[in-house]
Design a protein around this nucleic acid. Structure first.
Lengths: 242, 242
DNA sequence: GAGTGGTCTAGACCACCCG
DNA sequence: GGGTGGTCTAGACCACTCG
């Protein structure tokens, strides 16, 4: 029951994680079933208990296992899908879905920061921002309108190069701003005349309206985004934890 | 620099976590500042390095710190708010906000499971469900309409007692179904005649429409919920992680 | 009381990043 | 190089849950 044969370059706790995941996925460990006690697993795997615990903790985090103190560790009855609340670019998401997604550039300009955006990006009022407006289409149908605002001082190159959404993140990466997380606010709204025209829907039709601030690893806000999604074409999935 | 004076009943790693959090909050550790190396912290605190690391890991998880391999551990520039994507009852949320929230019961009955709900709850088609319809108000204004569906076999008591939303969770708790997480799907939609009337808005006005499946610790789906929120009264905040 | 997970130690060696 | 975090050990004792 040694698991080392696989990927000797991988950390032991990660090998434990993958070994247990495999046992769950192939049915060796069934829903509701109790795992062997941690000391036993440590012996079986030939590693220390702390390392076993770390592997188990990862799977608990993913929702495949749960622990009850004094009782044991068990496989969850139904495994909810992983990777919710993941921040990913439009392309990353669309490619997973297999849809033929395209991005159409409508505008790129430098604008002074409005009050709301300045606050979100922690920059001065009227500070120059790069504004990029894009339309997202699936097939021929426009599904979303994006307005991104990035402080010009963070990334002057954004005005020079051929940029698509994914690339702006990469450019920021190169400047030492690794994109880490975002805070997003979602509303339901009726489409304004301008938005209705761009998204080819009737004025007042319901759309999902989002404000998003994207932060780098060190906590610096690097992008403010306003997004209009067609209500009939788009839904937003999320995981909530108690 | 010992931190044990506080709460001797608390785990050491939690004391480390709180000690560091306090230093960040009171400005001893400033945004962007590097923490002492882990071995130094271990010596200062008089505990082992592994325990220090666990305390730090908790704060990284909260977004107050970040680590760079080979470089050091640092305080993030701006701390995003904690506790996003938390599953909480209407009362818990409203009480935090200080609003005078009330719940009005509209209906409680037993209904056979429709296909969609049966799939979400992993029960048979037409299996008896407890259906509870409630209206949520802030002041005199109705802001949300909730329809909860709970398998009757999980909780027959739901038909007997005086139940409010929070209580249904508690009843489930007592039956061994500790509520753990939820998967939610959000849409923008126009109000139907029925919903518009209940929420005192015009037919077709935009509303945030949510489907939510709530799971217990062991992965069992225990509640399916459909929720209509007034678009002009409600927004949904979430955190996305890359 | 027996069995389980929760915490903690005091080291060790490695991998990475910088000047 | 020297400094940092990343991983891992082989124990130990405690706290909780159950019959």
């Amino acid at each position: 029951m040694e698991l080392l044969p696989k990927t000797p370059g991988l950390a032991l706790y990660a090998q434990v994680r993958e070994a247990l995941r495999a046992q769950i996925e192939n049915g060796e460990l069934k829903p509701g079933q109790q795992l062997p006690p941690e000391p036993d697993l440590a012996t079986q795997f030939g590693i220390s208990r702390m390392t076993v615990r770390r592997g188990i903790a990862a799977l608990i985090n993913e929702g495949l296992l749960y622990r009850r103190r004094g009782i044991g560790t068990f496989v969850t009855q139904f495994h909810i899908e992983r990777d919710h609340n993941k921040l990913s670019s439009f392309f990353e998401t669309s490619q997973e879905l297999g849809a033929d997604a395209t991005i159409q550039f409508l505008e790129r300009e430098i604008v002074p920061a409005e009050q709301e955006i300045a606050e979100a990006l922690k920059v001065a009022f009227h500070e120059p921002l790069v504004h990029i407006r894009t339309l997202r289409l699936v097939g021929d149908v426009p599904v979303a309108l994006h307005d991104e605002y990035i402080p010009h001082k963070l990334c002057p190159e954004l005005m020079d190069e051929e940029i698509i959404d994914q690339h702006s993140w990469e450019v920021l990466d190169k400047h030492g701003y690794a994109i880490k997380l975002a805070i997003q606010k979602n509303h339901a709204r009726g489409a304004t005349t301008e938005v209705a025209e761009l998204l080819e829907m009737e004025e007042g039709s319901p759309l999902l309206f989002k404000h998003r601030t994207i932060f780098a690893e060190d906590g610096t806000p690097v992008v403010f985004m306003v997004c209009h999604n067609r209500g009939d074409m788009y839904s937003l999935k999320m995981k909530l934890v108690r």
